[in-house]
């Protein structure tokens, strides 16, 4: 009542009112995000496309518009097609293995929790531990595991049953398989945890209803669990696909793309073109190919799962 200074009070009140009105608009809440997205996502994406039509290079100062030259070059380069194939094999096997293994483990852990089995926690933690190991280190861990003599752990174990030593990293096919296995070692956890989360959200009454209807285990899985997991599976598959398509660090450390180009995925190829051969334009054109592949696959999944209204 005896306010010392009512003008200060009033200007404070006005300031508060302005602040409140500012907070009632979404822009202040979104501004940092919008700026960051514009600088680190939108602009680079557009720039990647633009760059792919130039011959920009890290070493030469002149950049010229070269039209579709970079793409034409890619299209006629048999090595590019080979790398596309390697990438496709790697990504496809990864998705299948990650999601299947993840699903099986999630179901097994969920089952164990419900039945009170021992070891479900240990299993869960073990799988998750593989996921948090940095990709570079996973590459190295498997490099150590796969040493191609009887001194390598895997080769030793194979030796016990009379096989080997197997040239895991120097045989083209085996090298690719090795990268897929190492990738699965890391990636399964993500699928598992996503699907496990999805399982927890399946309403229990649906299972009870299915039981009352006389559905056995398989039918309950087929007609209750799977449909309920649809959107989680969709998200998981999309993310795993994108992740696998763009794998870099693990392969970079494990095989470096070798032997030859047998494990050279597009991400690795692009990186080498851009930063080892300093040909930014050429790297950008590969990036655009990858971008299109990512978006196309996402669109295909969207169509296949028909979850657009659930997102």
């Amino acid at each position: 009542m005896t306010t010392p200074d009512s003008t200060t009070d009033r200007s404070f009140a006005r300031l508060r009112a302005v602040g409140r009105r500012l907070l009632d608009h979404p822009l202040p809440w979104l501004a940092p995000t919008l700026v960051l997205l514009a600088v680190f996502q939108l602009y680079p994406m557009v720039e990647a496309v633009l760059m792919s039509f130039t011959n920009e290079s890290l070493v030469s100062p002149d950049t010229e518009f070269v039209g579709i030259e970079q793409y034409a070059r890619l299209a006629t380069d048999p090595q590019f097609w080979e790398m596309l194939r390697v990438t496709a094999i790697y990504a496809f096997s990864s998705v299948v293995l990650h999601v299947l293994l993840g699903l099986v483990l999630a179901l097994a852990i969920d089952y164990g929790v419900r039945r009170g089995l021992r070891g479900h926690l240990t299993t869960r933690v073990s799988v998750l531990l593989a996921w948090i190991v940095p990709g570079i280190i996973i590459g190295l861990v498997w490099k150590v595991m796969l040493v191609e003599s009887q001194f390598g752990a895997i080769n030793y174990l194979l030796g016990l049953v009379g096989v080997g030593p197997v040239p895991f990293r120097s045989d083209p096919t085996l090298a690719l398989i090795s990268t897929i296995v190492a990738g699965t070692w890391r990636g399964t956890a993500f699928s598992m945890i996503m699907i496990y989360g999805g399982l927890q959200r399946v309403p229990q009454r649906l299972y009870e209803a299915a039981r009352v209807d006389g559905a056995g285990r398989w039918n309950r899985f087929r007609h209750v669990t799977l449909p309920q997991l649809k959107s989680v599976l969709f998200v998981t598959i999309v993310l795993v696909t994108i992740y696998a398509l763009n794998t870099f660090d693990l392969i970079f450390a494990l095989t470096g793309g070798g032997p030859g180009r047998s494990t050279q995925v597009l991400a690795l190829f692009m990186y080498q073109e851009a930063f080892q051969d300093n040909a930014l334009g050429r790297g950008a054109s590969i990036a655009v190919v990858m971008l299109v592949a990512n978006l196309a696959l996402t669109a295909v999944y969207l169509y296949a799962f028909d979850v657009s209204e659930e997102i």
Partner: peptide, 17 residues
């Protein structure tokens, strides 16, 4: 959509940014 785009893809222009 941005979430669907791996940073690896835009690493070249990111470098120039």
């Amino acid at each position: 959509l941005f979430q669907m785009i791996s940073p690896v893809i835009i690493i070249v222009p990111l470098y120039t940014v």
